[in-house]
Design a protein around this nucleic acid. Structure first.
Length: 715
RNA sequence: GGGCGAUUAGCUCAGUUGGCUAGAGCGUCUGGUUUACACCCAGAAGGUCGCAGGUUCGAGCCCUGCAUCGCCCACCA
């Protein structure tokens, strides 16, 4: 082989990704180019992506690697296009999520959060989170993330809290915040309330009981909640119950003795369902609570926060509601209160999205945000294309959700999070927003106050992430980079996060926080199945990258990844792109050998001109694909070209030329090869940054190389 | 109860505004150590593009209906 001083011994086949990736990342980091302030040349337009801050409670998984790949690709492309490209990294304390992870850890150590003080628990989780955070940052680096570490932000940093508190205060000022007794979704295992989104609905078959309630027959799946039912609701127009007047009282023989029942006529009574009559349990049902409020009815708690029956249940007190059901039914049967039982009644049950246990609605005083006015702004912004969804269907889904939005419960009964800056009266339970921590007595009754023990729903703070990371309300930073250009994240958090950012961003800054939304799907295993620990099909991206190279893994994430659709994580696919990486490498070995010391020329042969033209046409097509977010096509095209046109045809053809042809034809071909190779490397760079940059370091500066680092070459 | 997505080679998936002789990776078969690369090269087999209608000069792509799988939303009488 015709080795030259330009091709050191390290430039040997096969390509060694492990050796080069670390070196190259250090090179980039030291260049300072991840920070847009340091980028060379005149750059007028900014291009900003805010990274969805990964939860600092474990290792990065395949889904993280996917978003890192996509966002890094976007940032690199725009950087090469001459933009002031900024990609802001972050880490999320991930309130409830992290606390659950930590509780599992505690359980393994045979400890429980309920045996610890709040302070103890908080500081232990903080230490745990910090450790994970730095691990996570190392992982991001190994994936090639060209994010600006100097702007790294953690969701519990002071700057974040400050703005979250400001939003909270503003909401109160604008009359969009209230604290009141409302039905909340309560998880008896995790001991906290949830918003509507943290529920899952599962279909279940349960017996459906028809119970004799005085002269009425009522239907229920949950007889164990019925102890204190003393209101029977029918529709005002229901002919069957014409004889009964609204407010009429009837004495009824019930589970634990006689109760005085009151007839309530309300539109909520559905004549079509069951017998058209129902009793209500407002403390444990949202719809019942709404009825109770309309008629100002008394309410009573039957089941406690742990899911156990209270003393009102008499002999059943202290039993778990589900355990008690059978026994209660038995007793009612003996009392002749059971009319009939339908064995197989299919209905939807709300369960905790984390543990799958049944949600027990409870009446609680919590902080709620009035969402309607915020939603209207968001709907307008989306309709005006102030925010554009790359995947049209997600726009429709988001609009639909916004159009029927419910008030948002932002209180969580957990320790790990941003404390709600409010005082609660120990006398009258009145809640007061207190950002400055100055309130010492109740503004309503003058009673003593204490700190609200709750923390914010983590999505309340992360919903404000884009403007907080960019330093709102003041500064050049905010003016330059906000609104951001692209929000790239998983389609599973469309409502949780994306829509909330639009809502809160508009509310605080008057501007939608991003111009475009690109949602990726779930990463599945090679057979298209969801990854889960229990199935044992979880793949660790860090290990994969170590074995096959980060570049190969990134290609596998991009090619065939249609926006919004799920993607399969298949080792076969990654293996294929590892081969490709090696191909790119060997093309470099050939070309650099054959062109060593050559003189660049513009006087190229007709044949070479044709090669150049068709490549330029392809490059334009690829650029269009990039602009239109068809990254999967762009990557595949440059892959196909590089291997099957450039390597298989043009290089093979060149071998003949180099052995048979005259000097000027050779020279023309040498120039062509360098041109095609340099530009292919550029086009490949956003997808395969490490290997392209490694090779770039071997390419002599000249006609087609203007920058030392490929990362800042012009696309 | 409402909405959405998927259905294309043995497997996993691409296919942009309708122009296709329907592609990729892996797998299978045949031949080949040729100036980078065996992590390679040359070639081959393999498809009624879920089903049934329709629009069109032309449909994998548009329209209607159906089927199967999956997802999301919805106040559990």
């Amino acid at each position: 082989m015709n080795t030259t001083p330009d091709i050191p011994n390290t430039f040997l086949s096969p390509y060694n990704h492990e050796e080069n990736e670390k070196k190259i990342y250090t090179l980039w980091e030291e260049s300072g180019f991840f920070n847009p302030d340091n980028l060379p040349g005149e750059r007028k337009k900014a291009y900003t992506i805010i990274m969805p801050p990964p939860n600092a409670n474990g290792s990065l998984h395949a889904g993280h690697a996917l978003f890192v790949t996509l966002e890094d690709m976007m940032a690199r492309y725009q950087r090469m296009r001459g933009k002031k490209a900024l990609w802001v990294p972050g880490a999320d304390h991930a309130g409830f999520e992290t606390q659950v992870v930590y509780e599992k850890k505690l359980a393994k150590e045979k400890r429980s959060r309920f045996d610890m003080s709040r302070e103890e628990l908080y500081s232990e989780i903080l230490a745990f989170t910090k450790e994970n955070k730095s691990h996570m940052e190392r992982q991001l680096r190994s994936l090639g993330a060209s994010c600006d570490w100097s702007r790294m932000l953690f969701t519990l940093d002071d700057r974040v809290k400050e703005q979250v508190y400001a939003t909270f205060a503003q909401l109160e000022k604008d009359g969009l915040l209230y604290r009141s007794l409302r039905s909340v979704h309560w998880c008896p295992k995790h001991q906290t309330g949830f918003s509507d989104l943290e529920l899952e609905h599962v279909e279940r078959k349960d017996p459906f009981y028809y119970l004799q309630y005085g002269p009425f027959v009522i239907g229920t799946v949950r007889p164990e909640t019925k102890f204190s039912d003393k209101y029977v609701v029918v529709h005002p127009d229901d002919e069957r119950y014409k004889a009964y007047k609204h407010g009429q009282k009837i004495s009824i023989n019930w589970i634990n003795g006689t109760v005085e029942a009151t007839v309530i006529k309300d539109e909520a009574g559905d004549p079509e369902k069951g017998t058209g009559a129902m009793t209500i349990t407002p403390w444990h049902s949202k719809i019942d609570w709404e009825i109770a409020q309309r008629h100002n009815l008394e309410v009573e708690q039957i089941i406690d926060e742990r899911g156990k029956l209270l003393p009102i249940a008499g002999e059943f007190a202290g039993m778990k509601s589900m355990d008690a059901r059978g026994k209660i039914v038995e007793k009612m049967g003996k009392m002749g209160l059971i009319v009939r039982i339908d064995k197989e009644y299919t209905h939807a049950v709300s369960v905790c999205y984390k543990c799958g246990k049944e949600i027990e609605p409870q009446l609680k005083k919590q902080w709620f945000i009035k969402m309607k006015p915020l939603a209207e702004q968001a709907i307008t912004a989306i309709n005006n294309k102030e925010v554009v969804f790359v995947t049209e269907r997600h726009r429709r889904v988001a609009l639909h959700w916004l159009s029927q939005i419910q008030d948002w419960n932002i209180s969580r009964q957990i320790v790990w999070g941003i404390p709600i800056p409010a005082k609660i009266c120990t006398q009258c339970d009145h809640g007061m927003v207190d950002i400055e921590n100055t309130i010492t007595q109740c503004t309503k009754c003058g009673g003593a106050v204490e700190q609200d023990p709750d923390t914010f729903d983590t999505w309340f703070s992360s919903g404000q992430w884009p403007f907080i990371t960019l330093g709102y309300p003041d500064g050049k930073e905010y003016d330059t980079f906000y609104p951001t250009d692209m929000m790239e994240t998983g389609n599973d958090i469309l409502f949780f996060w994306v829509v909330r950012m639009i809502l809160l961003g508009l509310y605080r800054t008057g501007k939608a926080p991003f111009k475009e939304v690109y949602l990726h799907g779930l990463v599945r295993d090679s057979k298209g199945e969801k990854m889960s620990k229990s199935k044992g099909n979880v793949i660790d991206p860090t290990e994969v990258a170590k074995e096959y190279g980060t570049d190969a893994m990134r290609m596998a994430y991009i090619v065939g990844n249609v926006p919004g659709e799920h993607i399969n994580f298949s080792l076969d696919k990654i293996r294929g792109y590892k081969k490709f990486a090696n191909k790119v490498w060997n093309i470099g070995r050939f070309i650099l050998t054959e062109t060593n010391g050559c003189v660049y020329t513009n006087a190229i042969t007709k044949q070479d001109k044709e090669h150049k033209n068709s490549f330029d046409t392809l490059l334009q097509e690829i650029t269009d694909d990039m602009e239109q977010h068809r990254y999967h096509l762009a990557a595949e095209k440059i892959y196909q070209y590089t291997w099957h046109t450039f390597a298989d045809n043009i290089i093979e053809e060149s071998k003949k030329i180099f052995s048979d042809s005259s000097a000027d034809i050779k020279q023309s071909r040498q120039s062509l090869l360098l041109y095609l190779y340099a530009n292919s490397l550029k086009a490949l760079h956003p997808f395969m940054p490490f290997i392209t940059e490694t090779i770039w370091q071997h390419i002599p500066e000249g006609a087609y190389k203007t920058q030392k680092l490929l990362i800042v070459e012009k696309w």
